[in-house]
Amino acid sequence: MDLKGKKIAILATHGFEQSELEVPRDRLKKAGATVEVISLAAGEIKGWDMNDWGRPVKVDKSLDQVSSSDYDAIVLPGGQINPDLLRVEPKALKFIKEIFDAQKVVAAVCHAPWLLIETGIAKGRRMTSYKSIKTDVINAGAKWEDSQVVVDQGVITSRNPGDLEAFSAKIIEEVKEGRHLRRSVA
């Protein structure tokens, strides 16, 4: 499980589901990866913890300070607020799409598959998501599955916070595999 030398971006903004950022971040760091929280602006972003505002998380870099070529993977936490705010931000969508187009790992949990829909990544892929956006995923042309975690050539999706250990383990596995050269690039 050694990810030494691997660099992973977690793209989030205010309203990310607390555990969906913290659990993968902590597991990836424990596996040896360098993990950076990227957001729309510098400073801190505030999480959502089940039913109320959660703890702030320090932003390591803003989108203006990063390049997709610096990262081996991107993790997209869910929550309802976070991906809804990010999917209307062209810089965020461009960053996600560039990582995907470079055949690197893209991981989205809960409501974050909205970002895969918005970037066109969802079309034709096997995916899962939180049940309330199942129709959105299907309407985007994905093959939705009611599974804990679904992997389709380096695109990892997971249903909800109860699946975060399996989600994190799959991210580690896929990052160790490296680029997904068989992936068709749109």
Rank of each mutant, 00 (worst) to 15 (best):
K46R: 14
R182K: 06
T135Q: 03
K30R: 15
P83C: 05
E145T: 03
D49Q: 15
V151Y: 06
E174P: 08
V106M: 12
A166Q: 14
V185W: 04
D26I: 04
R159F: 00
A166G: 10
N51P: 00
E22M: 13
G178K: 03
R159I: 09
G162Q: 12
I117N: 05
A169F: 01
V35N: 05
G54E: 15
P24H: 07
G78N: 14
T13A: 06
K123M: 09
I8A: 01
K29L: 13
R179Y: 07
S147G: 02
S158L: 12
A102I: 03
K131C: 00
D64M: 08
D136K: 02
E17G: 08
L93C: 09
A166I: 06
A92I: 10
L3E: 15
V175N: 10
G43I: 08
D101Y: 00
G124N: 05
D2N: 15
A166C: 12
P161H: 06
W114K: 12
D72Q: 09
R126Y: 10
K91Y: 00
E174S: 15
R159G: 06
K30P: 00
V105K: 01
S69K: 07
N51D: 14
G154Q: 05
I117M: 11
I74Y: 11
S147E: 14
K46W: 08
R179P: 01
L86M: 04
V59K: 02
L63H: 12
K143Y: 05
I171H: 03
Q18T: 15
F16R: 11
G154Y: 08
E20M: 08
A186S: 03
M127V: 04
G54R: 15
V155H: 07
S69W: 02
N160P: 00
K58N: 08
I121R: 04
P83W: 07
A102Q: 05
E177D: 05
A107W: 07
S132T: 15
R27Y: 13
E36I: 03
E165L: 07
D163T: 04
G54W: 15
D163A: 01
V150T: 09
D64N: 13
R25S: 05
Y130V: 09
W144V: 00
G78V: 15
A42F: 03
D49L: 14
D49G: 00
A140T: 05
G124R: 04
I38R: 02
D64E: 14
A140Y: 06
D84A: 01
K6V: 13
N51Y: 12
R27S: 10
W53D: 15
S39T: 07
P113D: 11
S158P: 13
Y130N: 12
K7P: 00
K123F: 02
V66T: 04
I138F: 01
V88G: 08
L11R: 11
I138G: 07
D101N: 04
I8Q: 02
F100D: 03
E89H: 08
M50I: 15
P24N: 07
I133V: 13
D26G: 01
S129P: 13
R55I: 06
F167T: 13
A122N: 07
A140E: 01
A92D: 06
D60C: 02
I117W: 04
E173D: 11
D101F: 03
A33D: 14
W48M: 11
H180F: 11
F16K: 12
S158C: 13
K7D: 05
K6I: 13
